[in-house]
C-alpha cells in the first residue's frame, strides 16, 4: 500500500480514536448519541476505504451494516428511548474530564506500545489499524467505567464493538458470516438493553446506576 491510500486509511482510523475522545467528555445524552453516530460513520468510511483498497468486496457489506445500523438505526432508537424516558434534559455530571482525557491518552500510548512490537510481521497499515482499534476498545471500556447513566454505558459498549470491527477489517477482514452475526448480536443487545432500561426505569424511577445499586438484595459487607 502506498502514498495517499495509506494516508487516508490512517486518517480514518485516527478519526475513530478522536471520536472516542469526543465521547469521553460529552455530558448531554443527545450529544453523546450524536457523537456515537459520528463514531460509527467514521467506522463505516474506514471499513469502506479498506474494502476499496484491499479489493475485498465483502467488506463493503460490513461498511454498509455499520452505516445503516450503527450510524442510523441505533442512534435513532437511542434517541427515542431517551425521549420516552424523559431524560433528554438531564445533564450527566461528568467529573474529572481532565483526568479522563489524560487516562485516555495513556491508554492510546499503551495500545500502540502493545500492538506495534507484536505485529512486526504484518504490513504497516494493519499494524497501525490494530493499534488504533485497541485504543478504541480501551477508550470504550474507560467510558463504561467512568459513566453512571445506563444509556452512556450502552454507548460505551457500542463504541467498543466499533473498535472490534475496525480491527477485524484492518486484518484483511473476517469471514462474512462472523461479521453479520456480530452485527446482529449487537442489534439484539440493543433491544435487550432497551427493554431493560425501561424495566429498570419502571422499577426505580431512574436509570442512574448508583441508585440501582442501593436496591440490590443480599448486600453484605
Amino acid at each position: 500500500m502506498h502514498g495517499l491510500a495509506f494516508d487516508i486509511a490512517h486518517f480514518l482510523a485516527g478519526g475513530m480514536v478522536v471520536a472516542s475522545f469526543l465521547l469521553l467528555y460529552q455530558d448531554r445524552l443527545y450529544t453523546l448519541i450524536h457523537v456515537f453516530a459520528l463514531h460509527s460513520l467514521v467506522l463505516a468510511l474506514a471499513v469502506g476505504w479498506q474494502a476499496a483498497v484491499q479489493g475485498a468486496h465483502h467488506l463493503y457489506i460490513t461498511a454498509g451494516i455499520a452505516l445503516v445500523f450503527k450510524a442510523i438505526v441505533i442512534p435513532v432508537a437511542l434517541h427515542r428511548i431517551v425521549r420516552q424516558l424523559g431524560i433528554h434534559r438531564t445533564l450527566e455530571t461528568v467529573r474529572g474530564v481532565g483526568r479522563d482525557m489524560l487516562a485516555g491518552t495513556g491508554l492510546v500510548a499503551l495500545a500502540i506500545l502493545v500492538m506495534l512490537p507484536v505485529t512486526t510481521a504484518a504490513d504497516a497499515l494493519a499494524r497501525e489499524d490494530l493499534a488504533f482499534a485497541l485504543a478504541v476498545v480501551l477508550l470504550g471500556l474507560l467510558l463504561m467505567v467512568t459513566r453512571r447513566n445506563a444509556v452512556s454505558l450502552v454507548i460505551g459498549f457500542m463504541s467498543l464493538e466499533n473498535g472490534l470491527v475496525l480491527a477485524a477489517a484492518g486484518a484483511r477482514g473476517m469471514p462474512l458470516a462472523v461479521e453479520i452475526s456480530v452485527a446482529f448480536s449487537v442489534l439484539i443487545a440493543l433491544i435487550v438493553i432497551g427493554i431493560f432500561l425501561f424495566r429498570i426505569r419502571e422499577r426505580f424511577d431512574s436509570v442512574d446506576m448508583e441508585t440501582m445499586d442501593t436496591f440490590r438484595e443480599g448486600r453484605r459487607r
Partner: peptide
C-alpha cells in the same frame, strides 16, 4: 456484592495491567 461499575473497573483494570 460489588456495584456494576466496580465490576467493570475490575475487568478494565485487569486488562490494562495485563497489557502493561
Amino acid at each position: 456484592y460489588l456495584t456494576i461499575r466496580r465490576y467493570l473497573s475490575l475487568v478494565f483494570g485487569a486488562l490494562v495491567l495485563l497489557l502493561l
